[in-house]
Design a protein around this nucleic acid. Structure first.
Lengths: 224, 224
DNA sequence: TTTGCAGGATGAAAATTTTGATAATCGAAG
DNA sequence: CTTCGATTATCAAAATTTTCATCCTGCAAA
C-alpha cells in the first residue's frame, strides 16, 4: 500500500509517516501545492492524505484537478478546518473521507483501512523495479515473476530500504524500525546484519540484482 | 518506566499513549488540573508530560505545587505556546524540558529517553502488586523476589494487561499490540493463546497468583 | 440433562528471529 | 605498502515466536 501525504506541517507529516510505516504502508511526503500537482499525476498511489491549507495553493483545487483527470485513488482530507461547509465541499469534490485536526493516528489508520476495503482491492498495489515486484496488498515479493518466500522482518526491511531509496540509512534506524520496541541506543543491533544478509541472499538467489549497497560506517542504501 | 500524561486534548493524549506504550512505557492519562493534583501526589512516576493549558487551572501552577513538595520526577512541558517567556518560566519552575506543539512523537520519545538518562536511573521504576514486582527500567520481572525469565512478547503482554487492569481487553487488541504490525482483522490471532498461556505458566510456576482471568467470548482481564 | 459448538487451553512442531563466534573487508595511520 | 582496529559478512546454534492439531470448557438450545 502506497500512500502520498500532502501536508506542510513537517512534524505532523513525519509522525503520520512513522506511524503508517510501522503498519506496513509505504509513505511519501510532499509539502506544497506544486509538488503535489506533479507527483499526483506521475505516480499511482492507493491513498492520498491531503491537507487543505497548503503553501502555494488550496488543497481543494488540487483535488479538483485530480478528479478532473479521472484519477480514482482514495483521498482523505485532513484539515484544521472543522466547518461543515468545508467538509461538504471536500466530499462533493470527490474526497472519500474527511478528518479534522487534531486526530489521532490510530483513527487515521482505521480510516485508511476502511477506505482501502471499500475501494477495489485489486489496484496497482504493486511496486515494480526492473525484475523486482512487490505486492503491497498481499505482502508478497516476486523476482522475475517467481514468488520468493520472505519473512516478516525481511519484508519490513525491504520496504524500509525501498522507501528510502538512494538514501543511506543507519544500522541503528533499521534496528529501531524492525524491533518496534523501545529506543535501544545501548543495545546491540547486530541482528540487522543477519537480516540484510538473508534478504540479499534471497533476492539474489532468485536472480535479482543487488540493489542493497553497504556504506562503510554509515549504513545501507537501496540503489536505484 | 511509568509516565503520567496530563493533557486535555484526548486525541493527542491517546496518540502519545499509543506510541509510548509501543516503546515499552506504561502510560496513564489525566485530563484536568484537579485530577493531576491528586494523582501527582499519590503516585510515583518517572516522567510527567504536562500540558500548560488545562481545564481547571494552569499547568505551571501544578508544576509549582509539585516542586514545592520536593517531588523530583522528570517533567516535560508540552505546550502550544511557543513564546520564549513561557519556556523560561517553565524551566525556572523546574521543568526538565519544553516541547512546543506540534511535535512529533519520535521527538517526544527521544526527549523522554534523554531525560531518563540524565535522572538517576535507579528510581522507583518498579511496579509492585503483592508478590509480583516489575522493574520497568531493566524490563525484568520478579515473583516473590525471585527473578523469572520472560521473553519480550510476554513482557509486552504483561504490561499491556497490567496497564489495563480490571478492564477486559480483546484477543484482537492484544494481537495488534503484540504484533506491532498492520491491522490484521482477517488474520488469525491464535498466537495470543500461546502467549497468555506461557505467561500464566511462568508466573504461577514461580509461585505467583493468577491474576489473568479469561472472559469467555470477550478477552482477558488482569484482575486487581 | 444432554448435545453441539464456538471459544479457549495446551503442548509440540515448524518457522522465524536473535545471538555469538569467526572470517572478511575497509580505511586510517604509520 | 603494511598493519591495526573497527565495521561488516557469514554461518550455525540458541532462543523466541507462530502455527497446528487436539483436547477441554462454557454456553445455549433442545
Amino acid at each position: 500500500m502506497k500512500i502520498l501525504i500532502i501536508e506542510d506541517e513537517i512534524a505532523l507529516a513525519e509522525s503520520i509517516t512513522a506511524y503508517l510505516s510501522k503498519e506496513g504502508y509505504l509513505c511519501e511526503n510532499i509539502t506544497s501545492y506544486s509538488e503535489g500537482l506533479s507527483k499526483i499525476f506521475d505516480y499511482k498511489y492507493d491513498c492520498i492524505l491531503l491537507d487543505l491549507m497548503l503553501p502555494g495553493g488550496n488543497g481543494l483545487e488540487l483535488l479538483e484537478a485530480f478528479r478532473r483527470e479521472n484519477k480514482n485513488e482514495g483521498v482523505i482530507i485532513i484539515s484544521a478546518k472543522d466547518r461543515v461547509e468545508d467538509k461538504i465541499k471536500g466530499l462533493q469534490l470527490g474526497a472519500d473521507d474527511y478528518l479534522s485536526k487534531p486526530f489521532h493516528l490510530s483513527e487515521l489508520s482505521a480510516r485508511i483501512y476502511s477506505l482501502m476495503r471499500r475501494k477495489n482491492f485489486e489496484n496497482t498495489n504493486i511496486l515494480q523495479y526492473n525484475e523486482l515486484q512487490i505486492n503491497l496488498m498481499s505482502k508478497s515479493v516476486l523476482v522475475d515473476k517467481k514468488s520468493i518466500k520472505i519473512t516478516k522482518k525481511e519484508y519490513q526491511l525491504l520496504l524500509f530500504l525501498i522507501g528510502n531509496k538512494n538514501r543511506v540509512i543507519s544500522k541503528g534506524s533499521i534496528a529501531e524500525h524492525l524491533s518496534g520496541d523501545m529506543a535501544d541506543m545501548l543495545d546491540n543491533h547486530d541482528f540487522v546484519y543477519t537480516h540484510i544478509n538473508n534478504l540479499k541472499k534471497k533476492l539474489s538467489r532468485a536472480g535479482g540484482e543487488d540493489y542493497i549497497k553497504s556504506i562503510y560506517g554509515m549504513g545501507y542504501k537501496w540503489e536505484l
